[in-house]
């Protein structure tokens, strides 16, 4: 399995090729290498290294104060890193902030209230900041796609919470960035809107946009992210493909309802807990049901029902935090 350190190594190979004047870089949209961010004595981000591949949704997860927002703040130049390197499309953020900013879209956690301006005006100005003065087509596409067209003449203060959040997303996409940073994009939105935003994020990924997402909602990360990195106290505890992480760090719970008598149940092999005539097994995620049944020696005619509960990202997350 390729992990983030491999990507970082590959990136340094790119850097060497660049040194030799061989222009074959930008395998990665974003490379964070050994990033440290301190506020006084408090270390918010502690030697973080991750690399985002093109067209993936990467979830940066962690409890409050884990360093997720500080990491994003350094990528978008809101904060200067204490040490380490952040590169977007091969451009170092500290050296070429203007170029880097033009290549990424950022959705902040908090709602921005734009005072006197209407939704469409805000998008026009924002588009202009990215150098696109005549961008009506993209602005109208976003207004339509995000359901804001009927509200385009309203001021932000007259929008609902969900609309305000959709406006933030529209602003971030107005210049068609190839890298999108979403800081808690669905905080405080209802289930219906959350689902539609998930769908939209997947659409963006499928169209080639690379997405870095921070979220508290592990269900969201599990549903959306191709890979996740778990931060705790500023340190990256684990990184990898979401499914593999769940498989490596969780168990499958198999419940087998039988018609066996208490006497026959005692003959079933393996580790399990018993509830009436129902057997509860906890097996590694990679173990198949067939292997389990073969191991227990349960006759098929004795099985009335089987239910399997797969491990979740939440379980993997708690497992990692428990070990940290």
């Amino acid at each position: 399995m390729i992990n983030s350190s491999h990507w970082v190594q590959l990136y340094s190979v790119q850097a060497r090729l660049k040194f030799l004047n061989l222009h074959v870089y930008t395998v990665f949209m974003l490379v964070i290498q050994d990033l440290v961010k301190k506020y006084g004595d408090f270390t918010a981000v502690d030697h973080l290294s991750i690399a985002l591949q093109p067209g993936e949704i990467f979830g940066l997860l962690g409890p409050n104060g884990a360093g997720k927002t500080s990491t994003i703040a350094t990528i978008v130049s809101l904060e200067e890193p204490t040490s380490g390197s952040v590169k977007v499309f091969g451009f170092e953020v500290a050296d070429s902030p203007k170029k880097v900013k033009s290549l990424l879209g950022y959705v902040p956690q908090e709602i921005v209230n734009h005072g006197y301006f209407s939704v469409e005006e805000i998008l026009k100005f924002h588009s202009g900041y990215f150098g696109r003065l005549n961008n009506k087509k993209q602005i109208h596409f976003l207004l339509e796609r995000l359901g804001l067209m009927p509200h385009k003449d309203k001021k932000v203060k007259h929008l609902s919470g969900g609309m305000k959040r959709r406006l933030l997303i529209a602003k971030a996409l107005v210049h068609k960035p190839k890298l999108l940073l979403l800081d808690e994009p669905t905080a405080g939105v209802d289930i219906e809107l959350r689902n539609s935003l998930w769908e939209f994020v997947r659409e963006l990924r499928d169209s080639g946009v690379t997405i870095l997402l921070t979220t508290h909602y592990l269900e969201e990360a599990e549903a959306l992210c191709d890979r996740v990195g778990i931060l705790h106290q500023g340190r990256l505890q684990k990184v990898g493909p979401t499914k593999e992480l769940i498989q490596d760090l969780t168990f499958r719970r198999v419940q087998i309802k039988t018609n066996l008598s208490a006497e026959d149940l005692k003959k079933v092999k393996g580790e399990y807990s018993l509830m009436g005539s129902t057997l509860n097994f906890k097996i590694p995620s990679e173990e198949s049901l067939g292997a389990l049944l073969a191991k227990t020696g349960l006759p098929l005619e004795a099985i009335l029902d089987i239910s399997i509960q797969e491990g979740s990202l939440e379980e993997a997350f708690l497992n990692i935090l428990g070990r940290a």
Binding site: K98, L103, F117, F125, G128, Y129, G131, L133
Partner: peptide
Amino acid sequence: QKPSSDNFSHLRWNPFLSLLWREIRR
């Protein structure tokens, strides 16, 4: 390919003009 520096020429004046126009509109 890494974007060439020419791809950023639209950032020379347009962001400034946009912010100026925003200020006036405000």
